[in-house]
Amino acid sequence: MAEETFPPANRGPFSTLRRYLGIYALLARNSVVREMTFKTNFLLWIVVELLWFSLQLSFIGVMYLHTESIAGWSKWQVVLLMGASHFIQQLFQAFFLINCTNLSELVRTGKLDFLLMLPVNTRFIVSVRQMDLGAFVNAATAVAVTVYAANRLALAPSAGLVLGFLVLCAVGIIIHYSLMFLLATVSFWAVQAQGIVWAYYNLFNIARLPDAAFKGLFKVFFTFAIPMLLVSNVPVKLLVQKLGSPLELLLLLGMALGCLLVSEAGWRVSVRRYTSASS
């Protein structure tokens, strides 16, 4: 059926794009069907994520019981940061996270052989095979928190500013995806998927904290090597007009491009190794 719906490959960029969109639509439908098979589990996972999110918020709430500001950030600014960070994380989770963690399983079971043979870009099919629909629900709660915090701060951003914010969020998603994908390709060598997810959650923990609180090597490393302190800080700083200089925007974009390139290089090396190792 699929073969009739899609025009064959190699007919110019436009039809290639249409073909990939078509494939993506099919995969998305597949994900909906899959999720609906385990409805209770689907709902429970939403509860788990909600719980963790409120836990992070209460951590900040407790800190602000004892102080007015943390490194120049007020309570509602940090709440806004947490909301935005959760929004970025949940969208990343919706589109990419399971696929990244599944990669080690694909390698272990040899199912990757099958995907390598398909007439589509393997990285594409590996990255978007499944969609996590519950994460969209969680992204919505993140939006609610963000909007509420913006209200408390009496922010009235222009449409252009909101658009800029959303674009930067998308750039943040790209950074998370690239880094996670790179981590996942490590599974071609050793570590189990569980270890990868664990490492990732630890990294992500930093993204929701105000960058001004950090100093020294830690700050340099998580800005220029693993740009966790840029991912959600830069979009939020744009929104609350806290940006030190427009250079921060360029830095975020540059780091995103860098991460994407490095992850592509890592992927290519790994696939080459996989093929030569054979299963």
């Binding site: 570590v191 001004a212 609180a213």
Partner: peptide, 29 residues
């Protein structure tokens, strides 16, 4: 053992972040 080492080492990252945050709180008081 490698997994454990990985776990313990990565667990220090959010710990460091929390310590930074508290330092900022105390510095602000």
């Amino acid at each position: 053992r490698l997994n454990f080492l990985f776990r313990a080492a990565f667990g220090l990252i959010p710990l460091t972040a929390t310590i930074f945050l508290w330092q900022a709180v105390f510095a602000g008081k």
